[in-house]
Computed example of a mutant assay.
Amino acid sequence: MKGRVLDGTALVMAPEDNVATALEDLDAGDRLADADPPVTVAEEVPFGHKVALADIAAGDPVRKYGEVIGEATEPIAAGEWVHTHNCESTRGRGDRAAEATADGPGGGESV
């Protein structure tokens, strides 16, 4: 298996990830002692969902698979559930690509 399993309950896919994926339902108070630094789960995190491994400021990238998959829409503390209530996907966002092209060199024209 690629990645690193934390305490048999969460999977980190790449060293630069700031979230882990729950391999089972996590309860508030569960501890991911194998994380560096260790993290205490702050709230229920359902199987397959993400838990923050570090504090993530509003506007900061959310990294999974070694890639940016979203942006925090509000501050997320280590141990909190990361989902649509506090993270907006940036993957497949054509509107963001158009904005980046318009703001970049070449003066506002999109390709």
Score class of each variant (00 low, 15 high):
residue 2 K to S: 15
residue 6 L to A: 04
residue 7 D to P: 11
residue 11 L to Y: 03
residue 12 V to H: 01
residue 16 E to P: 02
residue 16 E to D: 10
residue 17 D to N: 11
residue 17 D to T: 14
residue 17 D to M: 09
residue 18 N to W: 00
residue 18 N to K: 00
residue 18 N to D: 00
residue 19 V to P: 09
residue 21 T to F: 08
residue 21 T to I: 14
residue 22 A to P: 11
residue 23 L to P: 06
residue 23 L to R: 01
residue 24 E to N: 06
residue 25 D to M: 10
residue 25 D to Q: 08
residue 26 L to R: 00
residue 26 L to T: 02
residue 28 A to Q: 07
residue 28 A to I: 14
residue 28 A to E: 08
residue 28 A to F: 07
residue 28 A to W: 10
residue 29 G to P: 12
residue 29 G to S: 11
residue 29 G to N: 07
residue 29 G to Q: 10
residue 30 D to K: 03
residue 31 R to H: 13
residue 31 R to N: 12
residue 31 R to F: 12
residue 31 R to P: 13
residue 32 L to M: 03
residue 34 D to G: 10
residue 34 D to S: 11
residue 35 A to R: 03
residue 36 D to S: 15
residue 36 D to T: 15
residue 36 D to N: 12
residue 37 P to D: 07
residue 38 P to H: 07
residue 38 P to I: 08
residue 39 V to F: 02
residue 41 V to T: 04
residue 41 V to D: 01
residue 44 E to T: 15
residue 44 E to Y: 12
residue 45 V to G: 09
residue 46 P to R: 06
residue 47 F to S: 06
residue 47 F to M: 09
residue 48 G to F: 01
residue 49 H to R: 06
residue 50 K to D: 05
residue 51 V to G: 02
residue 51 V to W: 07
residue 54 A to P: 04
residue 55 D to S: 12
residue 56 I to H: 05
residue 63 R to K: 13
residue 64 K to M: 08
residue 66 G to F: 05
residue 66 G to W: 09
residue 66 G to Q: 10
residue 66 G to E: 09
residue 67 E to F: 15
residue 70 G to W: 01
residue 74 E to K: 13
residue 74 E to W: 03
residue 76 I to K: 06
residue 82 V to R: 02
residue 82 V to W: 02
residue 83 H to Q: 03
residue 85 H to A: 05
residue 85 H to R: 05
residue 86 N to L: 05
residue 87 C to G: 00
residue 87 C to L: 13
residue 89 S to K: 03
residue 91 R to H: 12
residue 94 G to N: 08
residue 95 D to H: 08
residue 97 A to Q: 13
residue 97 A to C: 13
residue 99 E to Y: 01
residue 101 T to I: 14
residue 103 D to M: 12
residue 104 G to N: 11
residue 105 P to A: 06
residue 106 G to N: 06
residue 108 G to T: 03
residue 109 E to D: 12
residue 111 V to F: 10
